[in-house]
């Protein structure tokens, strides 16, 4: 078949940012998958709630303090997170490097109260279905925190190498910030479920 040049694309950028980047859409796709998983876990929480004669089953309500501290820590990390994202968009290498170091610390910080959250449930995962679901919710979210933390650490290292100053890396940083926002937002309904629903 004969070819007829109809469109010149040579002036297009070599890498799209934001919604013009497949990586951004891929991140959104995985957020949708994990969002579905979180939604399902919450649905199961309420299902078990609905069939239990009393809730929590055979346990006092969980202590508020570690979970609330963690929530505050997560919320506090939103501002620097968004700043890092902006700096990445502006390709400010030095600021992104510092921001990523700060974010690494801020993402590691919630793991400390998280350790105390498990005993604060006053129930073990193998005691009853209530214990199983709250431990699962916490475990699921912890897995996301750790995943994003590792991602941030790797990106931080990467930004200090010769590959750092590159549109793709800035895109990666933005996507990583987006994902951390997702980790924070996903926690809020879990927090309400785990700590406040039993208090209703």
């Amino acid at each position: 078949m004969k070819e007829r040049a109809a469109l010149d694309v040579s002036k297009l950028p070599l890498h799209g940012m934001g919604a013009a980047s497949p990586a951004w859409w891929g991140t959104c796709g995985f957020m949708l998958i994990e969002g579905s998983a979180f939604a399902l876990a919450i649905a199961i929480y309420f299902y078990l709630f609905s069939i239990a004669p009393n809730w929590p089953i055979d346990a006092p309500v969980p202590d508020l303090s570690p979970g609330s501290v963690l929530t505050l820590l997560l919320l506090a990390s939103i501002v620097p997170n968004i700043l890092v994202s902006r700096w990445a968009k502006a390709r400010a290498l030095a600021k992104v490097r510092i921001g990523l170091i700060v974010m690494s610390l801020l993402e590691a910080a919630p793991l400390a109260p998280r350790i105390f959250e498990f005993p604060a449930m006053h129930v073990s995962w193998d005691e009853n279905a209530y214990g199983s679901i709250v431990w699962t919710l916490l475990g699921l979210h912890t897995a996301h925190v750790i995943t994003d933390l590792i991602d941030t650490l790797v990106l931080t290292c990467l930004m200090f190498t010769r590959y750092g100053d590159n549109t793709r890396r800035y895109g990666d940083v933005e996507d990583n910030c987006l994902y951390w926002n997702f980790v924070i937002v996903a926690w809020l309904p879990l927090y309400v479920c785990i700590y406040w629903v039993p208090r209703l």
Binding site: I44, Y47, I51, E127, N128, A129, G131, S132, W135, T136
Partner: peptide
């Protein structure tokens, strides 16, 4: 697999779980 391996109780009616879940 958690129920089978580490004794969570999701599907155990005796401990608040449910076979229909």
């Amino acid at each position: 697999i958690l129920d089978r391996l580490v004794e969570t109780q999701f599907y155990n009616p005796a401990a608040g779980g449910d076979a229909l879940l």
